[in-house]
Write a protein that binds this DNA or RNA. Structure first.
Lengths: 339, 339
DNA sequence: GTGAAAGCGCTAACAG
DNA sequence: CTGTTAGCGCTTTCAC
């Protein structure tokens, strides 16, 4: 690693100009004679020069990098996170936006106290200019830690506790309503819900919207089993619902992965989807398409949301945005075969 | 962003010592009086000091960061990558190893020419010290670009063209044999294969091992349909196999995702797995467990392989490893229900 | 329009 | 064991 590439100095010598001029050319600052520009560019070419990021960051105080943080807990966290295609969409959306602004996204996992403090450290050191964070736990301390460390941050989803922070979200309540109304409209009468964790605002809102729509239609209270966003938890919830309410003919699962688990159980128990039991999921992740049958689901425009997060962060970084930015998107029902 | 945190200088003043001493304490260099150490640590505490990464990197020429590159092509690449749990395991393994060495993994996608040059740029700038790369395309130019830029790199899997580069892989040929022998041993006689892309060494080797084992057992040539590692391609291949060889009673799919696609088709066409048609997958990803029925599959110790990659890279970085490191693991058959 | 010079915050010899 | 002294490679006033 004693590979010391050429520096500005080398290029300047080669081009017969000063470091300052080379710097201006490299950074596209005008006020440089077009002729000289060519000479410099030529010199850069022949020397194979590439600017040193550390030196640059040291003076500009910018790393041109933003951290994309996924926070949660447990062993094999990265593997579990990737099990839900949801995250691929977030990353995709963020990457797409950032790429155009020449910012580098770096994905990091914060699944333990150690990992969290390493992440905060990374930001405090200035290795990244800000963070986009997706938090999977209600009691996740990461957002607070980041805020406390004065790191510019934008969250995916409104945090469980009120925090002076920017975030991007969808109207989950409305999403729950959409699911209920669709099930009702197609004729399902004995409904049940596999909810998201109720310590998450999204979980509460989706369920509240679902329930309110049902109440509004005079379709009283429904059985609810709480899931954990995983395939297994969806399957387990479905089993319990079938035991306790064998007459069920419509289920709203708070994400697609749980809906898939529910479908598997239904099929195993000989119920046809949607003929015997209709199933509505949430997210419209790739699972919705590959699931058998393909899922009717409430779509979150995740890529757009991620792009909005990146945009908000970029705004904060260049100081054009003050205070908190909060963007709430509308969900949309996507009808496929499961309901 | 005019937030200029406290510097070494500030801490030194607060503690009444020189910058050098504070630096020593921060970096855990001994030769510092224990008493002074406490004073310094106290000063760090009260000032809320955190070292500046750029300044440090500038002199150490190390970013304490390694890039984890996933290279391929196409729209929504990140989303597709995440659709295969395989990557979660790679990330998991690498992260686990790196964490202990206080190195930060940064995940980046290189799915277009633009993205690739940005990635190379990132490395050339010194923002990361080296790269672990997972390449999904036979003609991927990224490894070459990295090598050319003199970036320390370790690949996941042997590259299609011989390259003077370190890599970690498994014995795919042996994996194909394991699959064939298992299918034969359980009594399947009319076999077929859904292969991986044949421009990939892994794809060729898996198929060769499968075929050779069959030949060896006197079970002649088998129909082969090439897939693309995706669920859909597995399903499509299965459909074609059923059309052309309805008598098939055993299938080897070159990864779990394609095996899952095959299982879905088989079920839809009224074939029981494994009773009518046995299916063997490859990878032992989380899909193998969640698939119905759970897949018998050839396991790649992906987490260990990723850790080995990180270890090899770390070796190169500290200069203790010279030339290329090549590690080849043995695959292992995991028997579940599908065969 | 261009160059000279002053750091950015840190580590690493080198003295003492 | 501790302090002094040089830079690391770059951007950025400030003169010219």
């Amino acid at each position: 690693m004693t590979k010391r590439g050429p520096t500005l100095e080398d290029v300047a010598r080669e081009a017969g100009v000063s470091r300052a001029t080379v710097s201006r050319v490299v950074n596209g600052v005008r006020n440089v004679d077009p002729g000289l520009q060519d000479v410099v560019r030529q010199a850069i070419e022949t020397t194979g020069y590439s600017p040193n990021g550390a030196a640059r960051s040291l003076v500009t105080r910018r790393a041109e990098t933003v951290a994309l943080l996924v926070s949660g807990a447990g062993d094999g966290f990265a593997a579990r996170v990737f099990a839900d295609p949801f995250f691929g969409r977030i990353v995709s959306g963020a990457v797409t936006y950032l790429r155009g602004r020449a910012m580098h996204p770096v994905l990091m996992f914060a699944e333990s106290d150690e990992a969290r403090s390493q992440v905060v450290d990374y930001l405090r050191r200035g290795s990244a200019d800000g963070a986009l964070v997706v938090s999977l736990q209600a009691d996740d301390p990461l957002p607070q830690m980041l805020l406390h460390a004065r790191v510019p941050v934008v969250l995916f989803a409104r945090p469980p506790q009120p925090l002076p922070v920017s975030y991007v979200d969808i109207d989950h309540y409305q999403g729950g309503r959409l699911a209920a109304e669709h099930l009702l409209a197609r004729g399902s009468r004995r409904l049940a819900a596999i909810s998201a964790p109720q310590d998450l605002p999204a979980g509460r809102d989706r369920l509240a919207g679902f329930r309110d729509a049902l109440d509004h239609a005079g379709r009283g209270p429904v059985p609810v089993v709480e899931g954990a966003f995983t395939l297994d938890s969806g399957a387990a919830a479905m089993i319990r619902i079938l035991e306790e309410h064998p007459e069920v003919d419509g289920v709203f699962a708070a994400n697609d992965l749980m809906a898939q688990g529910a479908c598997q159980i239904l099929r195993e128990q000989g119920r046809r989807v949607p003929d015997d039991v209709a199933v509505v999921g949430f997210d419209d992740s790739s699972i919705a398409v590959t699931c058998r049958p393909p899922l009717t689901t409430v779509r979150q425009p995740v890529e757009k949301m991620a792009a909005a997060m990146a945009e908000a962060l970029a705004g904060h970084l260049q100081g054009s945005a003050s205070g908190q930015t909060r963007v709430v998107f509308d969900p949309e029902l996507v009808v496929r075969e499961s309901a």
